[in-house]
């Protein structure tokens, strides 16, 4: 069983049960893909449509970080996850 802390910010919060932060446990696989599958199982199509386009690719502007690191600079959705890791999802953000 892998336990991961999942965090998100503003407009994505309502799509993950209203939690800014939650712990997700899952058994199948130990990759970001498996974690997201678990989240989609829990929160359904609204979350899927927000994160992925029709071809199944992560939408432009969505950013995903594992322990603070951009997963697309690692192994993408196949990046390995360990028990106790922290996963952060951003809706499109800009400015500053």
């Amino acid at each position: 069983m892998t336990e991961v802390k999942v965090k998100t910010i503003f407009s994505l919060i309502e799509l993950v049960g209203g939690h800014r932060e939650q712990t997700i446990s899952f058994e199948t696989g130990e990759t970001v893909s498996a974690l997201i599958a678990e989240l989609l199982g829990l929160y359904g199509d609204d979350l899927r449509r927000r994160l992925f386009d029709e071809t199944g690719k992560v939408k432009h502007g969505i950013a995903l970080f594992l322990n603070g690191r951009n997963i697309f600079a690692l192994e993408g959705l196949e990046t390995k996850i360990n028990n106790g890791d922290e996963f952060l999802m951003f809706p499109p953000v800009g400015g500053g």
Partner: peptide, 24 residues
């Protein structure tokens, strides 16, 4: 743009407080 009208025109730069806070 996934952000310019949908988020940025409504929230402006202050939304970045949440992003950089989440990134520590």
């Amino acid at each position: 743009s996934p952000v310019l009208y949908s988020e940025f025109s409504k929230l402006g730069t202050p939304m970045v407080v949440e992003a950089t806070s989440a990134m520590g």
